[in-house]
Each structure stands twice: as C-alpha cells, then as structure tokens.
Design a binder for these strands. Structure first.
Lengths: 334, 334
DNA sequence: CTGTTAGCGCATTCAC
DNA sequence: GTGAATGCGCTAACAG
C-alpha cells in the first residue's frame, strides 16, 4: 500500500542507502544515479515517512509550544512569530493550550517530550520547581517565551515588565497626574501581574507619590474586568485622575466604562496600558500604551531555540527585548 | 542514556510485551505484575517514546491543522475549539499557518502528511483541484473547517455564509434602509468574500432594491480597509444610509471613520457585519452582527475528524452550523 | 495471563 | 560512489 524507500530502491535499481542519500541531499551521489532515483520517486509517488526517519535519526524537526491560550490576541501574535521562524528553519510546531494551570502545563510538557520534540518553547504562568523538574527529565533545549524563571537558569526572551509598567506610570506622572489608579492582574502571575504591579509602585515612590491600596484593583485581563475595576474607581469618594492598566483589553473596558458614565477620556480621565495590541488603535480615543513586541518575542525565542538545538553556543541566553511607550489619544495632562 | 521499554522489562522481571501492555492499559495483565511494572517505570523514570510507538502502530495521535493565520482573532478562536476537543480525545495538533496562499497550503499539507498525522483539518481559501490532488495522495481523513469545496465531496463544517450575509442585510432592510452599501472581501475567497457578497445581492433583490456597484468596496478584512471603504461611501454624491460589512473588524473601521467625520452611528449610518467576534461588544456603539460560532466550528470539525479517524460511520459529513443575528447598538431605523 | 518473534521505514556505520 | 547490515523503541500477532 504505502511505498517505502525500499520500493524506490528497487525501482531505481540501487540500494536503499542510496535513496536515503538523495532524499537527504547527501552530496556523495553521482548526478547520474541521483536522477534515476528522483525519477523512481516521482513514478512511485514516494513520500518519506518522517516518523521512521525520526526514530532512526533521533530528530523530529518539530518543537513543542505550550501556550496559555491561543485565542488570546497577545499569545496568538507571539505564536505567529514562533511559527514564522520555525517554518523558516523547517521545524513544525505542536501547539498546546495550558491556560496557565500548573498541572495542565506539566502534563503537556510530558506528552510533548514523549513525542520527542527537538525543543520546547514554554509560555505560561510561574515557572515552579515542578516545571524545572519536568524540564530536567529530558535533554532537549527549552526556552521560556514571555516569561522568566526566578533563578534565571533557563534561557528566556521577554521584555522587562517591571520597567514597562514603570514607564507607563511615569508618563502619566509627567502629565501632572498625582492620583493614579491601577488595574492589574493576579500577583501570582509573575510577568503581567506581579512585575507590572511592582513597576507601578516604584513609579509612584520615585516621584514621591504615596501608594494607596484603594487605588488598585485586580482583574482577569478581560474587557469586562477592566470595566468593573473602573466602576469601582468612579464610585470612590475622591476619584483618581488617571489609570494604568496592566493590559490593553482591561484598559479599553475602563475607557468604555468612563464613557458610559458620561465622562470623557482623556479630559476627565487619562488611561494608559501595557501591550499595544492591534486593538489599541481600534478604540476611540485611541489608546496610549507601552508597546510590547509580541511577534518579536515569539520570533526571537524560536530563533534562540534553533541555535540551542543545533548546539551552537549562544552568548546571551536571557534576552530582554526593548519596550517603548506609544502615545495616542487616551492620555492628557492634568 | 534513554531508558527503553526493554530496560523496564528487565528491571521488572517481565517481557517487553507485558510492559507494553501495562503502558497501553491492556486489561490482560495480572494486577500483581502490573504493579511491579509500574514500580519499575517509576524507579527508572521511563517515558514512552511516541515516535517509536507511532512507527510500530501506524498511529501518531496527532492531527495536522492548516490555518490561514493564527494571529487573526477569528481563526485563533476556531483553533481553540479544535485544540480543546483534540485534547479531550488525546490528540495533539501540529499547527501550520498558510496565509491562504495556495502553494504554501499544498506544501504544509505534504509535510503534515509526511509526519504521518492521523487526520487533517484544513482551514484556508478556495479548495482547488491541486488541494484535492494532495489530499488524495494519502488516506487519512480530512475535514474542511470554515470552508467548503464546491463539489461538496469532502467532509466539512461551516456556517452558511450566503445566508448569514442575507440575514444581516435583511435586518437592515427591515429597519427601513433602502440604500445599503457593502464592504466585502475578495471574490476569490469563497466563504468570506464570494458567498457573503452573494447573500448581500440576494437580500437586495428579494426586497426589490437595485444593486449598485458603486455601493460595494472590497477590503482586506482589516480595520484600516474598512475605514477606507467607508471614506469612499462618505464621499459619494448621494450617500447610503447603512453599510453591511463582511467582517467585524472592517465594520469597526467603518464606524470609526463615520465618527471621525463628525457623523454618528446609528443616527446617521447603521452598520452590521458578520462574525460577532469578542471585539463586537468592545466598541461604542456596540456592533450588531450575525454571529458565527467560531469556537464551535473548530470543536465540531475536530469531533467529526475523531469519528472519521476511528472509522465510525458518520451520517452527516457536511455540517452547517446555525448563525444568528445579535442586535446591539449599531443599527437604527431609517 | 505472559513471552517470543517480527517487523514498522528509515539513517547509519562499515565495507568495497 | 555505492551496497549490506544493523538497530532506533515499540506494537502486534502468535504461541503457550
């Protein structure tokens, strides 16, 4: 039924070793016979079996990608960067959603390893000892994508979330705001949650503003939670004049909450966030945000992984990509 | 270095066949020895090699997914549906972006087939003879996801795009609009382009309205192209009063174009689209749209594929999921 | 219930 | 340049 390398060999009147050579572009084949083999391949409609090849060569040219949620625009953009570079280096990717749930993450890491992926790209929540444990059971290279581990022992590529948040809040402060609220994520989330919150606090301190816990609400990164948080701020006896959101989507929720209550952005409230997803320019007023290069994070981490897989020596195993604040219309001066 | 089934067998004092049985949950193993084997597995840290298993069993428990662009919210949502169900049935997915480019599609289909996927989910542009050709070279089941082939020979799951567009335009007509513009996609695109355009025309005809080609613009599904198209309509000597957009994103572009020109939605213009992505409720005014069940399309197509892979007989190989118009705030009466 | 024996389709020595 | 032989790690009959 299925035509194998052996069939091709017989058809071409050569050995399977030779067929293997031409299929793998080994130069040690006379052009003459190479041609014969190609013709036989064509005639028989031979298609190499990558699984057999993987077993024999111990290389599958596929990498595993564990991602929190592919339907989240941010991660989807990272994934696109990963896939583009993977494709460029002739790797395929096995994609697994893990929703930042530790057990699910551990589980998919293991099945990915069973599938003998040549490398692993991990995008998730906190990197715990259990993760490290799971990583250690294999000897394929791993790179953390849009996350970091505390000890910094694993290669990773990300932005400096703390600094990004700091810069966002600073631009608010520079505009004269002194009462700045924050809509954050759970502190369990090291990057989007904890670090961005730390950046917020540091920005306040640096400028001599006092931190007020009534001015921070924790959301779940979704639009609705941004609106809810904003509602809370609007109900405060003394309202802040600006809000920093850990993500675009919550920021947009906040903007609409403000508008739905008859107030205006940026006249009555300034809002800024971190992300700069495509949605940022798809709202009115357009959202000012600290840009996080999602696509590049994916692309660079995949590129790093290819190097690791080829056992090339990499100088920089922990890369921090730059962020930048892009001002649009949602921030005004006080 | 790597511990194999043979090592486990020796450690447990049984044959490799027995180890294979317990690993595969074959009931024909005495609980006694099953326990011994599990202990040996634990002690040695054995991890089954899925590649070897795949070669021996001719099943890889992975399916290939060709998708136009994972960074597009619509497709990402479909992908999530696919992955969830795949995961439920213990399949993994290899994800390949193909940008609706025919050659790229053909190419990834072939590499997916080389990787011996157990099934293929195809999401793309038109299904040409070349595609059929490529599909035919393998005997794994294929299902078209959010697309259909003309002859209807391949299993597929999608909505009725023509009817969805028809319904969208009809709701505009019911509100008293008689001059309705359309922002569409390229007619080369069978689902989002051609079919939705056909639905638009039929709705006009059905209601005795005349089709005016000056009232239709072709966009590229992105926000900016929606705005540009709308700009064109605004510049017309006699403006339409409503616009139907083939996608949410272009509709939002149109809304903002209207607003940026000092006009109002729905007071001056009504707008409706097909998709109903999460963004629809993240604009002001909130977008009315015909809902297309993206997640379900993915989930159902994956479910269908699992049946096909198990060689279960499926009664309905061409499933058309229902759509529904959800009215929000962007449509008003004339 | 358990062990023996063959491959699965290919890459890879090692000879020639 | 090319061929013969071996094994990658596992499943699948087939015996017993």
């Amino acid at each position: 039924m299925t035509v194998t390398i052996y069939d091709v060999a017989r058809e071409a009147g050569v050995s399977m070793a030779t067929v293997s050579r031409v299929v793998n572009n080994n130069p040690n084949v006379k052009p003459q016979t190479r041609k014969k083999v190609f013709e036989a391949i064509e005639r028989l409609g031979y298609r190499p079996n990558a699984v057999a090849r993987g077993l024999a060569s111990k290389k599958t040219t596929t990498v595993g990608v564990v991602i929190p949620d592919i339907s989240n625009a941010i991660f989807a953009e990272v994934a696109r960067g990963i896939e583009d570079i993977a494709n460029m280096y002739h790797y395929n990717i096995i994609l697994c959603n893990a929703d930042k749930k530790k057990d699910k993450e551990i589980r998919v890491i293991n099945t990915l390893l069973e599938k003998q992926v040549d490398g692993l790209l991990f995008m998730g929540g906190a990197v715990t000892d259990e993760h490290l444990q799971a990583f250690r059971t294999s000897n394929v290279p791993i790179v953390l994508c849009a996350t970091t581990d505390e000890n910094g022992t694993i290669p990773s590529v990300d932005i400096d979330h703390e600094a990004a948040a700091f810069d966002a809040v600073q631009t608010l402060i520079k505009q004269g705001h002194t009462s700045i609220a924050m809509i954050g994520g759970t502190l369990q989330d090291p990057a989007n949650g904890y670090s961005r919150f730390q950046g917020y606090k540091r920005a306040l301190e640096t400028s001599g503003l006092t931190y007020d816990e009534n001015l921070v609400r924790i959301g779940n990164y979704r639009y609705e939670s941004g609106a809810e948080a904003m509602k809370h701020f609007l109900d405060l006896p003394v309202r802040p004049t600006a809000v920093f959101s850990a993500t675009d989507e919550m920021a947009i929720g906040a903007i609409h909450c403000i508008q739905d209550n008859g107030l205006r952005v940026p006249d009555d409230f300034s809002v800024i966030s971190v992300d700069n997803s495509r949605m940022a320019s798809m709202v009115r007023p357009q959202l000012s945000a600290v840009a996080q290069p999602m696509y590049d994070i994916g692309a660079v981490s995949m590129r790093l992984l290819t190097k690791l897989m080829k056992k090339e020596t990499v100088e920089q195993a922990k890369v921090v990509l730059p962020h930048e604040v892009v001002m649009r219309q949602s921030v005004g001066s006080k």
